[in-house]
Amino acid sequence: MTLNLLSCKGTAQETEIKKTTTEIDVSEVTESVFPEPIGIINDYGQVFTEPQRAELSKLLYDYDIETTRQIVVITVDSITPYTNIQKYATDLAQTWGVGTAEKNNGLALVLCKPCRRISIATGTGTELVLTDEICTKVIDEKIVPEFKNGDFYTGIKNGVITLIEKWN
């Protein structure tokens, strides 16, 4: 099963240092590069409180049940051996099989708080509605401003709600 994903990324930093990056073929990477999925909220970076995880889980599970579209939120402390969070998010979502294979209707929102990076990876079916431009705008206008205030949960929640509104 192959889930074709497109992605967009945002950054919480004002400037970005250009570095030479090496692309990684996910088929050659051991599965241990990615954490095991534990649900619709995968807070490996321990960004959310338990009540925040529960609230966000309910929102995303309800949306999945209502529409069969799957949004998964992942927080991590590192994207190593990757250097590009967009590629990391896309490969992680493909490895996990986010969304349904028939509709390619998955979306993975990946936050690496220590890296100060966030990315949205979308399936090709999702990309028909949630374009890279829309995802970038959501990151820049809904998520990053809250991050700059130190409120990661509100940023993610606002971003998810906006993505759901635009996807309907």
Rank of each mutant, 00 (worst) to 15 (best):
T2R: 10
T2F: 12
L3M: 14
L3R: 09
L3K: 11
L5N: 10
K9C: 05
K9L: 10
G10L: 04
G10S: 02
G10P: 04
T11E: 10
A12K: 04
E14H: 10
E14Y: 08
K19S: 12
T20F: 07
T20C: 05
T20D: 07
I24K: 08
E28V: 07
V29R: 12
P35H: 08
E36Y: 13
N42T: 09
N42M: 11
N42V: 10
Q46V: 15
E50S: 11
A54T: 15
L56C: 07
S57V: 07
K58W: 05
L59T: 15
L59F: 04
Y61R: 10
Y63A: 04
D64W: 13
I65A: 15
I65N: 11
T68C: 07
T68R: 10
V72K: 03
I74M: 07
V76M: 06
V76N: 03
I79W: 02
Y82F: 12
Y82G: 02
T83Y: 04
T83W: 03
T83S: 13
I85H: 00
A89T: 13
A89L: 06
T90D: 10
T90K: 15
L92N: 08
A93C: 13
Q94V: 11
Q94F: 04
Q94T: 13
W96N: 03
G97T: 06
V98P: 01
T100W: 09
K103H: 11
G106D: 07
G106A: 08
L109V: 13
L109F: 14
V110R: 00
K113P: 02
K113E: 11
I118H: 00
S119E: 04
A121H: 01
T122H: 00
T124I: 10
G125Q: 09
G125W: 05
T126K: 03
T126L: 07
E127Q: 12
V129S: 07
V129Y: 06
L130V: 14
L130I: 15
L130F: 05
D132C: 12
E133M: 13
T136G: 08
I139E: 01
I143M: 13
P145W: 02
K148M: 13
N149D: 13
G150Q: 07
G150Y: 06
D151M: 05
F152Q: 00
Y153S: 04
T154A: 06
G155Y: 00
K157C: 06
G159A: 03
V160C: 04
I164L: 09
I164T: 05
E165P: 01
K166Y: 08
K166P: 03
K166T: 11
N168Q: 13
N168F: 10
